[in-house]
């Protein structure tokens, strides 16, 4: 009885049917963003602004110290950088470092690829990779330098050896975890197409794991830079006039502190370029375009 009353009462509510409001009622539906909003929305502009602020803080602090032997200003460092580049000396050092770096990086990536393929093809291979990574990943590359000197002598090959060590584990670990997190459905789709072995890996697993692979490549690149600069400082001249690390070390010995800062600044600038331009291009064309990474 109570139910019936309730239903009865409910039905007293009037029905509502409406026409949508006409377009004029809203005012502006679409408008262009103001210049400021656009500038703030752009990542490169925001980052450039941060760099400017940092440079300004550096300049102010350097002037307050007032001693170029302790802490040169941004201006002094910049002029040391420009004169180093102009004389060609710094450019040669950068080139020498980059050559070794690229060789080590490439070999490291190739070794990581081989190791990961072994790891995904058999269960034993997976154990081999996991164990090796757990053993060697925490080992600082510099700690291997004395051994490298004995095995490979005082040349570029020793540097390449420690570089490979610093790149290999980071890239292998990330690539492997990317393969493992590939969705079951995508794997089944690939096998449904009849893909097997290397074709399955290259057509399905590698693209599917690309976000992790790119992360691994970035980490590997940063590790390689650190290792190389440190190794060059310990190592001295490896080939020709030596690389950027040796340039920094030499400048310190000659108490040319602005040049030391200029060397450090060029490491930073190259790092910013690789991260902000090369890797960003790669990501924009791949993972971000496919919305596999935001």
């Amino acid at each position: 009885m109570a139910d019936a009353t309730a239903t009865h009462l409910h039905n007293f509510r009037p029905e509502i049917r409406r026409e949508p409001a006409s377009a004029e009622a809203f005012g502006i539906v679409e408008r262009r963003l103001t210049v400021w909003e656009q500038l703030y929305g752009s990542g490169p502009v925001r980052k450039a602004f941060i760099l400017l602020v940092l440079a300004a803080i550096w300049e102010v602090y350097g002037r307050s110290v007032g001693n170029p032997l302790l802490f040169p200003t941004f201006g002094e460092t910049a002029s040391a950088l420009v004169s180093g580049l102009a004389s060609g000396d710094l450019l040669m050092r950068v080139w020498a470092s980059l050559q070794v770096l690229l060789i080590g990086y490439a070999i490291g990536i190739a070794a990581a690829a081989a190791l990961t393929v072994v790891a995904i093809s058999t269960r034993l291979g997976e154990d081999v990779m996991v164990t090796l990574t757990a053993m060697f990943s925490p080992l600082p590359a510099i700690a291997l330098l004395p051994l490298a000197l004995i095995w490979f002598g005082l040349g570029a090959s020793s540097l390449v050896f420690v570089l490979v060590h610093s790149v290999l584990w980071a890239v292998a670990l990330n690539t492997f975890s990317g393969f493992q997190s590939t969705s079951r459905t995508l794997r089944m789709v690939g096998r449904n197409y009849g893909l097997k072995g290397w074709r399955f890996v290259s057509r399905i697993l590698i693209p599917a794991a690309l976000p992790s692979i790119v992360t691994g490549l970035k980490i590997g690149w940063a590790f390689a830079w650190r290792t190389l600069i440190a190794a060059e400082m310990v190592f001295g001249v490896s080939s020709g006039q030596g690389g950027l690390g040796w340039f920094i070390f030499q400048s310190k010995n000659m108490l040319d502190i602005p040049a030391v800062f200029a060397g450090l600044l060029s490491v930073i600038l190259i790092g910013l370029f690789v991260e902000g331009v090369l890797f960003k291009l790669l990501e924009d064309r791949t993972v971000r375009r496919w919305a596999m990474q935001s």
Binding site: T185, L186, T286, W290
Partner: peptide
């Protein structure tokens, strides 16, 4: 598994995200 028995899954992630719609069909 083989392409003589094409499968349609329940999951939406069965398309390859790195290929366009038409490439997903041609692949």
């Amino acid at each position: 598994p083989g392409p003589d028995r094409m499968m349609v899954f329940q999951e939406f992630d069965q398309l390859l995200p790195w290929k366009t719609v038409v490439q997903n069909v041609t692949f």
